[in-house]
Protein backbone atom coordinates (compact mmCIF):
# COMPACT_ATOMS: atom_id res chain seq x y z
CA UNK A 1 0.00 0.00 0.00
CA UNK A 2 1.28 3.42 -0.85
CA UNK A 3 1.98 5.82 2.02
CA UNK A 4 0.13 8.67 0.33
CA UNK A 5 -2.17 8.45 -2.67
CA UNK A 6 -3.70 11.57 -4.10
CA UNK A 7 -6.18 10.99 -6.87
CA UNK A 8 -7.75 13.61 -9.10
CA UNK A 9 -7.85 16.10 -6.22
CA UNK A 10 -9.83 19.28 -6.76
CA UNK A 11 -9.63 21.68 -3.85
CA UNK A 12 -9.52 25.32 -2.98
CA UNK A 13 -10.46 28.17 -0.72
CA UNK A 14 -14.08 29.27 -0.62
CA UNK A 15 -15.45 28.66 -4.09
CA UNK A 16 -12.16 29.15 -5.83
CA UNK A 17 -10.64 25.97 -7.22
CA UNK A 18 -6.86 25.95 -6.86
CA UNK A 19 -5.96 22.26 -7.08
CA UNK A 20 -7.31 21.08 -10.35
CA UNK A 21 -7.06 17.34 -10.85
CA UNK A 22 -3.91 16.73 -8.81
CA UNK A 23 -2.45 13.21 -8.75
CA UNK A 24 0.53 11.98 -6.76
CA UNK A 25 1.60 8.75 -5.10
CA UNK A 26 4.36 8.59 -2.49
CA UNK A 27 5.74 5.30 -1.24
CA UNK A 28 7.50 4.94 2.09
CA UNK A 29 11.19 5.65 1.67
CA UNK A 30 10.74 8.09 -1.22
CA UNK A 31 11.52 11.79 -1.34
CA UNK A 32 9.40 13.76 -3.79
CA UNK A 33 9.97 17.37 -4.70
CA UNK A 34 7.27 19.61 -6.07
CA UNK A 35 8.45 22.69 -7.91
CA UNK A 36 6.36 25.34 -9.47
CA UNK A 37 5.96 29.05 -10.01
CA UNK A 38 4.23 31.37 -7.57
CA UNK A 39 0.49 30.79 -7.50
CA UNK A 40 0.66 27.26 -8.86
CA UNK A 41 -1.04 25.90 -5.72
CA UNK A 42 1.97 24.43 -3.87
CA UNK A 43 1.10 25.84 -0.46
CA UNK A 44 -2.58 25.09 -0.98
CA UNK A 45 -1.61 21.46 -1.51
CA UNK A 46 0.20 21.39 1.84
CA UNK A 47 -2.73 23.02 3.64
CA UNK A 48 -5.30 20.69 2.11
CA UNK A 49 -3.19 17.70 3.10
CA UNK A 50 -2.74 18.98 6.67
CA UNK A 51 -6.44 19.87 6.96
CA UNK A 52 -6.37 23.61 7.48
CA UNK A 53 -9.81 25.17 8.02
CA UNK A 54 -11.23 26.71 4.87
CA UNK A 55 -9.18 24.57 2.50
CA UNK A 56 -11.81 22.20 1.24
CA UNK A 57 -11.55 19.28 -1.15
CA UNK A 58 -14.27 19.52 -3.80
CA UNK A 59 -13.53 16.31 -5.60
CA UNK A 60 -11.11 13.40 -5.64
CA UNK A 61 -9.60 11.25 -2.92
CA UNK A 62 -6.57 11.23 -0.64
CA UNK A 63 -5.52 8.06 1.17
CA UNK A 64 -2.89 8.12 3.89
CA UNK A 65 -1.75 4.63 4.83
CA UNK A 66 -5.01 3.47 3.30
CA UNK A 67 -7.23 5.73 5.43
CA UNK A 68 -9.44 8.48 4.03
CA UNK A 69 -7.31 11.49 4.91
CA UNK A 70 -9.87 14.12 3.93
CA UNK A 71 -12.22 12.77 6.56
CA UNK A 72 -9.76 13.33 9.42
CA UNK A 73 -9.35 16.32 11.77
CA UNK A 74 -5.96 18.05 11.55
CA UNK A 75 -4.82 16.57 14.88
CA UNK A 76 -5.86 13.08 13.76
CA UNK A 77 -3.69 13.48 10.68
CA UNK A 78 -0.78 14.50 12.90
CA UNK A 79 -1.38 11.48 15.11
CA UNK A 80 -1.50 9.27 12.02
CA UNK A 81 1.99 10.55 11.22
CA UNK A 82 1.65 13.55 8.94
CA UNK A 83 3.91 16.50 9.67
CA UNK A 84 3.91 19.87 7.94
CA UNK A 85 6.96 22.08 8.34
CA UNK A 86 5.41 25.52 7.97
CA UNK A 87 6.67 28.17 5.61
CA UNK A 88 5.82 30.75 8.30
CA UNK A 89 5.94 29.03 11.72
CA UNK A 90 3.59 30.62 14.26
CA UNK A 91 4.58 32.38 17.48
CA UNK A 92 3.04 31.30 20.78
CA UNK A 93 4.00 33.81 23.50
CA UNK A 94 4.66 32.45 26.99
CA UNK A 95 4.83 28.81 25.88
CA UNK A 96 8.43 27.67 25.87
CA UNK A 97 9.78 25.74 22.96
CA UNK A 98 10.42 22.81 25.31
CA UNK A 99 6.85 22.83 26.67
CA UNK A 100 5.47 22.89 23.15
CA UNK A 101 7.64 19.97 22.05
CA UNK A 102 6.60 17.91 25.06
CA UNK A 103 2.92 18.77 24.72
CA UNK A 104 2.94 17.88 21.03
CA UNK A 105 4.88 14.65 21.47
CA UNK A 106 2.63 13.46 24.28
CA UNK A 107 -0.53 14.45 22.40
CA UNK A 108 0.62 12.37 19.46
CA UNK A 109 1.66 9.45 21.66
CA UNK A 110 -1.62 9.48 23.54
CA UNK A 111 -3.47 9.64 20.24
CA UNK A 112 -1.70 6.45 19.22
CA UNK A 113 -2.52 4.74 22.50
CA UNK A 114 1.09 4.91 23.65
CA UNK A 115 2.31 5.99 27.08
CA UNK A 116 3.58 9.50 27.51
CA UNK A 117 7.34 9.79 27.60
CA UNK A 118 8.71 10.25 31.11
CA UNK A 119 10.31 13.67 31.68
CA UNK A 120 13.88 12.38 32.06
CA UNK A 121 13.88 10.39 28.81
CA UNK A 122 12.17 13.28 27.07
CA UNK A 123 14.82 15.76 28.16
CA UNK A 124 17.61 13.45 27.08
CA UNK A 125 16.02 12.84 23.68
CA UNK A 126 15.32 16.53 23.02
CA UNK A 127 18.82 17.61 24.06
CA UNK A 128 20.34 15.12 21.68
CA UNK A 129 18.15 16.09 18.73
CA UNK A 130 18.54 19.81 19.48
CA UNK A 131 22.30 19.58 19.33
CA UNK A 132 22.09 18.10 15.85
CA UNK A 133 19.90 21.03 14.74
CA UNK A 134 22.08 23.66 16.38
CA UNK A 135 19.29 24.52 18.81
CA UNK A 136 20.85 25.42 22.16
CA UNK A 137 19.32 25.30 25.66
CA UNK A 138 18.52 28.97 25.56
CA UNK A 139 16.43 28.50 22.42
CA UNK A 140 14.56 25.63 24.08
CA UNK A 141 13.64 27.90 26.99
CA UNK A 142 12.47 30.79 24.85
CA UNK A 143 8.78 31.14 23.98
CA UNK A 144 7.97 29.26 20.78
CA UNK A 145 9.20 31.18 17.73
CA UNK A 146 8.90 34.54 19.54
CA UNK A 147 11.80 36.70 18.40
CA UNK A 148 13.36 33.77 16.51
CA UNK A 149 15.25 34.69 13.34
CA UNK A 150 14.09 33.17 10.06
CA UNK A 151 16.83 30.57 10.27
CA UNK A 152 16.02 29.73 13.89
CA UNK A 153 12.37 29.20 13.03
CA UNK A 154 13.18 26.79 10.21
CA UNK A 155 15.72 24.86 12.28
CA UNK A 156 13.09 24.64 14.99
CA UNK A 157 10.53 23.23 12.56
CA UNK A 158 12.96 20.47 11.64
CA UNK A 159 13.64 19.86 15.34
CA UNK A 160 9.90 19.37 15.89
CA UNK A 161 9.86 16.98 12.98
CA UNK A 162 12.78 15.04 14.47
CA UNK A 163 11.00 14.81 17.83
CA UNK A 164 7.66 13.74 16.35
CA UNK A 165 9.20 11.26 13.87
CA UNK A 166 6.39 11.43 11.32
CA UNK A 167 5.57 8.87 8.61
CA UNK A 168 5.23 11.63 6.04
CA UNK A 169 6.99 14.99 6.27
CA UNK A 170 5.81 17.86 4.11
CA UNK A 171 8.31 20.71 3.89
CA UNK A 172 6.65 23.87 2.63
CA UNK A 173 9.26 26.28 1.23
CA UNK A 174 11.60 25.35 4.05
CA UNK A 175 14.43 27.10 2.19
CA UNK A 176 12.77 30.51 2.06
CA UNK A 177 14.62 33.13 4.06
CA UNK A 178 17.63 30.93 4.78
CA UNK A 179 21.25 31.83 4.16
CA UNK A 180 23.56 29.14 2.88
CA UNK A 181 24.80 27.97 6.30
CA UNK A 182 21.31 27.70 7.74
CA UNK A 183 20.19 25.88 4.63
CA UNK A 184 22.97 23.32 5.15
CA UNK A 185 21.95 22.76 8.79
CA UNK A 186 18.28 22.36 7.90
CA UNK A 187 19.09 20.01 5.04
CA UNK A 188 21.39 17.92 7.24
CA UNK A 189 18.53 17.60 9.73
CA UNK A 190 16.11 16.52 7.04
CA UNK A 191 18.58 14.13 5.43
CA UNK A 192 19.27 12.49 8.77
CA UNK A 193 15.61 11.59 8.88
CA UNK A 194 15.47 9.88 5.52
CA UNK A 195 14.54 6.27 6.04
CA UNK A 196 12.81 3.36 4.34
CA UNK A 197 9.79 3.85 6.54
CA UNK A 198 9.34 7.58 5.93
CA UNK A 199 8.11 9.55 2.96
CA UNK A 200 8.90 13.20 2.26
CA UNK A 201 7.30 15.85 0.13
CA UNK A 202 9.57 18.84 -0.42
CA UNK A 203 7.79 21.88 -1.80
CA UNK A 204 10.05 24.54 -3.19
CA UNK A 205 10.28 27.32 -5.66
CA UNK A 206 14.02 27.08 -6.24
CA UNK A 207 16.26 24.26 -7.25
CA UNK A 208 18.82 25.36 -4.63
CA UNK A 209 17.25 23.34 -1.80
CA UNK A 210 17.39 20.22 -3.95
CA UNK A 211 21.17 20.48 -4.12
CA UNK A 212 21.09 19.76 -0.40
CA UNK A 213 18.12 17.41 -0.18
CA UNK A 214 18.38 15.08 -3.14
CA UNK A 215 14.90 14.00 -4.22
CA UNK A 216 14.07 10.68 -5.85
CA UNK A 217 11.36 12.31 -7.93
CA UNK A 218 10.72 15.84 -9.13
CA UNK A 219 7.31 17.09 -10.22
CA UNK A 220 6.48 20.33 -11.92
CA UNK A 221 3.24 21.84 -10.68
CA UNK A 222 1.42 24.48 -12.68
CA UNK A 223 -2.10 25.79 -12.16
CA UNK A 224 -3.06 23.18 -9.64
CA UNK A 225 -1.81 20.00 -11.24
CA UNK A 226 1.39 18.14 -12.05
CA UNK A 227 2.39 18.79 -15.63
CA UNK A 228 5.62 16.87 -15.70
CA UNK A 229 7.45 14.33 -13.55
CA UNK A 230 10.98 13.07 -13.67
CA UNK A 231 14.17 12.41 -11.73
CA UNK A 232 16.52 14.93 -10.08
CA UNK A 233 17.72 16.07 -13.49
CA UNK A 234 14.36 17.73 -14.02
CA UNK A 235 15.14 20.21 -11.24
CA UNK A 236 18.37 21.22 -12.93
CA UNK A 237 16.59 21.67 -16.22
CA UNK A 238 14.07 23.96 -14.55
CA UNK A 239 16.88 25.97 -12.99
CA UNK A 240 18.28 26.61 -16.49
CA UNK A 241 15.12 27.26 -18.44
CA UNK A 242 12.54 28.42 -15.86
CA UNK A 243 8.84 27.63 -15.83
CA UNK A 244 8.00 29.59 -18.95
CA UNK A 245 7.54 26.60 -21.24
CA UNK A 246 5.04 24.95 -18.88
CA UNK A 247 3.06 28.12 -18.36
CA UNK A 248 2.73 28.58 -22.09
CA UNK A 249 1.54 24.99 -22.56
CA UNK A 250 -1.01 25.27 -19.76
CA UNK A 251 -2.63 28.45 -20.99
CA UNK A 252 -2.91 27.25 -24.55
CA UNK A 253 -0.09 29.49 -25.80
CA UNK A 254 -1.83 32.75 -24.93
CA UNK A 255 1.14 33.90 -22.89
CA UNK A 256 -0.85 34.41 -19.74
CA UNK A 257 1.77 33.38 -17.14
CA UNK A 258 4.12 36.19 -17.90
CA UNK A 259 4.27 37.44 -14.33
CA UNK A 260 5.22 34.07 -13.00
CA UNK A 261 7.76 33.43 -15.68
CA UNK A 262 10.04 36.07 -14.18
CA UNK A 263 10.55 33.94 -11.13
Amino acid sequence: MALLEIENLHAGVDDKTILNGFDLTIEAGEVHAIMGPNGSGKSTLSYVLAGRDGYEAQNGAVRFDGADLLDMEPEARAIAGMFLAFQYPLEIPGVTNMTFLRTALNAVRRGRGEDEMDPASFLRMVREKSRAMGVDDDMLKRPLNVGFSGGEKKRNEVLQMAVLEPRLAILDETDSGLDIDALQTVADGVNAMRSDARGMLVITHYQRLLDFIKPDFVHVMVQGRIVRSGGPELAEELERSGYGAYLGAETGGQGDGAGAAHA
Binding site: G51, P74, E75, A78, F83, A104, L105, A107, G111, Q160
Partner: peptide
Protein backbone atom coordinates in the same frame (compact mmCIF):
# COMPACT_ATOMS: atom_id res chain seq x y z
CA UNK B 1 -4.01 25.21 13.08
CA UNK B 2 -0.34 25.14 13.98
CA UNK B 3 -1.04 23.46 17.33
CA UNK B 4 -3.49 21.01 15.82
CA UNK B 5 -1.04 20.09 13.07
CA UNK B 6 1.29 19.07 15.89
CA UNK B 7 -1.35 16.74 17.38
CA UNK B 8 -3.17 18.93 19.95
CA UNK B 9 -6.95 18.92 19.89
Amino acid sequence: FYCRQRGLD
